[in-house]
Design a protein around this nucleic acid. Sequence first.
DNA 1: AGGTTTCATTGATGTGGCTCAATGGGGCTG
DNA 2: CAGCCCCATTGAGCCACATCAATGAAACCT
Lengths: 240, 240
Amino acid sequence: MTDRQSYGNAPHAHHRCDQCDVRHKAMCAAVEEKDNDRLAAIVSHRDISPGQVIFEEGEPAEYAYNISRGEVRLYKLLPDGRRQITGFLGEGDFLGLVTDDTYAYGAEAMTPVELCIMRLSNLERLIADIPPVRDKLLDMSRDELAAAQEQMLLLGRKTAREKLLSFLLNRLDHSDVKTSEAKIILPMSRTDIADYLGLTIETVSRTFTALREERLIELPDTHTVMLPDLEAVRDASEAL
Amino acid sequence: MTDRQSYGNAPHAHHRCDQCDVRHKAMCAAVEEKDNDRLAAIVSHRDISPGQVIFEEGEPAEYAYNISRGEVRLYKLLPDGRRQITGFLGEGDFLGLVTDDTYAYGAEAMTPVELCIMRLSNLERLIADIPPVRDKLLDMSRDELAAAQEQMLLLGRKTAREKLLSFLLNRLDHSDVKTSEAKIILPMSRTDIADYLGLTIETVSRTFTALREERLIELPDTHTVMLPDLEAVRDASEAL
DNA sequence: AGGTTTCATTGATGTGGCTCAATGGGGCTG
DNA sequence: CAGCCCCATTGAGCCACATCAATGAAACCT
């Protein structure tokens, strides 16, 4: 599951932050034109291949990351190997808020990932000097907290069917491709979905099949889901 | 469950913040001596009796709160009434971080509660003007996020037994009475515990009984738990 | 192209926790 | 202090989801 190789590949040289594709979505959007050089001076880049570990839970936290390309899973483990995925991150998302000086969760690439890296000490100085950055991070952690609470409701009180439908609706909201027909691409495996929803892989698979037979969803292939009747899905995701 | 009466009792007059019992634990600790007057000028107080609603999920958020006395539960509801408690708050805790301008969860008093109230608009000005306040709030939401992720692990992947033991250990950590024997006071009902752990009241009750029969816990009365062998509890809370 | 590995699906069976139901006990009220 | 109400406990049976096991299908390597 985590064939950690050389711990990521060698970092690149610095980059032009003002030309970054995901700048507008990322924390960096809070940095003004004039401070761009300062931002560029403290970031470097790294490519990560699918399945590789970015960092592990409990590891001393040295860096914070912005995802400039690809998809990442965050997870926590129990001693016997049970895993809970606490979130999926994508382009523009920020990675590495820490409490005590260790990472509170592990992070792995699900697809090829391009990371924008900065030392936490440098980030802290940036935060102190540029108030909008601090505001942006506060906002982001507020949003994350609201999402976490929604996920607690899902994990603690929803059925398998409701969990899966809520998950699909979430994915739809967060996808940027807004076609008329609701189409969802799932970059993660069934196992990842199961570990995110507090289910087993078999239950996820069976529930997908059941939903397809009810015509609530279509599955053109394993990693694509279509929602032909959004209203029906919304109703079924919280039962009535 | 929520006999909302007159929506709290009449607010008191302002208070001496510098004499506040919970100041050192609260966000207010980040306000310096010289800014005390400014803090005192924007806060008022309110007493809430057990079971009363402080605010409801989805309600437009106008105020933020500090808890100066008592215990509060936060929760989210599904349309059919299923409830997930997302957290328990106590003295010094802050209440009312919002995403869009509505509360992301409901809040109810579990015991008699004394609240320190401030308008969100005033708090925002305080945040903008006094950087340590912003830092403190960022820290607090980081901690809350870490706790939320831990709770996701619990809800998604732990057994009833592990859930209950983890819950007790958490309560022990957050209690300020540090006696040699590990003693825990639970202000909340069995139903609250069930809704926090994603269980039913019957399972909570049965699990308590089973743990007592194994001598992992003692139950002098319904709302008191003793942990005679902390190591054994820690092991059992994550299985091996 | 063939062989291997990995991942998803499906089936058969088991079980932890839920549901439904009855009983017990502690605290409040009059 | 009797009666009531609320809450917790306990029991019996059931079911949603887990576990165990087999098969199918796609991706990967050589």
